[in-house]
Each structure stands twice: as structure tokens, then as C-alpha cells.
Write a protein that binds this DNA or RNA. Sequence first.
DNA 1: ACCGAGATGTAACCAAGGCTACATTTCCAG
DNA 2: CTGGAAATGTAGCCTTGGTTACATCTCGGT
Lengths: 141, 141
Amino acid sequence: MTRRSNKSAHSRVRADHASEIAEDYVEAIAAILVEKEICRVIDLAREFQVSHVTVNRTISRLQRDEFVTTTPYGPIELTPKGRRLAQASRRRHEIVLRFLKALGVSDATAIQDSEGIEHHVSGETLQAMEKFAAKRLGSGE
Amino acid sequence: MTRRSNKSAHSRVRADHASEIAEDYVEAIAAILVEKEICRVIDLAREFQVSHVTVNRTISRLQRDEFVTTTPYGPIELTPKGRRLAQASRRRHEIVLRFLKALGVSDATAIQDSEGIEHHVSGETLQAMEKFAAKRLGSGE
DNA sequence: ACCGAGATGTAACCAAGGCTACATTTCCAG
DNA sequence: CTGGAAATGTAGCCTTGGTTACATCTCGGT
């Protein structure tokens, strides 16, 4: 196979689920909520290194899509749907991270790359990564 | 580390290089050029399953950024810069693909996921993948 | 040589993500 | 209890990537 005939493969890459941004946001919100009890616009702005305006509009979309709830000037909370997505994202993220470390790359690289990769791994691949990491690292850390 | 403190990690995810789309396009153009000698808008429209209009505008950007050259109603060609990017993308893509297969996922999944992952692997990770695949599959196929 | 089908181009629209500049709210230190 | 700093909100603009509808060009077959 000299590469070619990917037809629909590409189109599927960008489709489906709540945008990568949505996943990143709910994941971050969940994490912030864990260690700070309250999540505000500014926390996300700092986390993603974007302006508070961008966060604002993104949160609006997330609210529209029922992933979060919030009120003007109020804190940001996750809906059950948002919490579910957050947990799924976190799980993926962690599996990919553990996998990369098991593969032998530096921690910094593993952290970096896992952010980009997590949104593009199918269930099948995720499972393979999990298995691989387990074999290399054992179940613990 | 309970996950957090990724600060700049995310921002770096979307930055740098010619957008993923650019890479996908030059890679596809190069591949088409290999087996058809001529690449036209419609070829890319079919490849990516988007309208010819989208391809048109994307090609304009690629031309603006000097990755391709073309004339109204004419075929699309790669500039040296475009050829370089295409080759680099193809290499990455192939390494990731081989790696996923070595990991043990189905061919279909490997093909699918490699499209999404190729743009998010650092050089370090790519190297690790290459090494892993070589160990599992040997140098040949 | 011509003519229509198919390939391209253009106009105009949409949503997502990003930004700056400016307007409002909040809320705590004094 | 109040003033101002910090957090939020709003308006308006940009780019990318995607669309449909409609205009135009090209080229091969009759």
C-alpha cells in the first residue's frame, strides 16, 4: 500500500463528539473544581493561556450544549452531562499519558503529546495502549 | 501529580507549523501527483470529502504560504517548500501508522487513528514509536 | 467547429476560536 | 460603607474551515 485510498478516513477525524475544546474545558473545570471548589473564567483563561473573552464565549457554547451551568459573574459548574464527558476525557488523557511514559519518552514530552493525542485515539487503540502500559509498568504507578 | 499545572502545554498544542490541514493537503497532493501526474481541485475535494469550494480556498492559502502553485483552472503543484512539508508529513504519518499496527490494533483502526495522531506527536515520541515498531516488526513489512 | 458536462471560480453565509478595547460588577481593604 | 482593583461582560474585528447557489471556463465527443 503506497498510501492512498483514505477517502472517508479524514472526514471522520473531524466530526462526532463535542469539539476537542469542549473536552479540554470540562476536563480542566473538573480538575479545578477538585482542588479549588470553585471555577471561574479567569482560572480557565490562565490554564489555556487565552483571553478571558475567549473563555467566556466558549463557556457560553458549553452552556448552550448543556455541559456546564453558570450565571453572569458567577462561578462555573458542570452538569451531569459535563461531568460524564469530563471523566471520560480524563480517563483517555491518563491512559495516553501513562502509555507515552511506558513507551519511554520523557515526562515533559509525555505530558505535552498526551494533550494533543487524547482526542484522536479510538477505543480500540486506547485499549491497546492501556494493555501495553500495564504490561510495562504494572497496575500501580 | 493529580493532573494540573499544564499551563502552557495546551497553548503549544495549537501553534507553530503549517496547520494540520496544510499538512494533510500537501501530503495528499504529493500522493496524488505520484499516481496521476496531475492534481486538480476535484481530486482533493473527493479525497477529503469536502466541497470544491473549500478546497479552492484552502489551496489559495497554501499558495499564499508558498506551499503550492497553481493558476486559474490549472492543475496544482507543490513548491519545494511544499514538497519538503509533504515528505515530512508522510514520514510522520507512516511511522505512526506502522507503530499502531505494531501495537496490535486492526489495520482499519491504525489507518484511521494515524490520521488524527500524526499531527500531535513530537519528535521524541516519533522516535520512540519508530524504535518500538522496528523491534516488533523488524525493518521490512 | 461547437456544445454541453464537468471542473473551477465567486459571492455570501455560518460557526468556532482568538483578539483588543471599553463597559459593568463584585467585593474586600480601609 | 465606600472606592477602586480585579473579574466579567459586550461590541466588533479577524482567520480558518465548511456550506450552497450561481457564474464561467475547458475540453472532448459528435
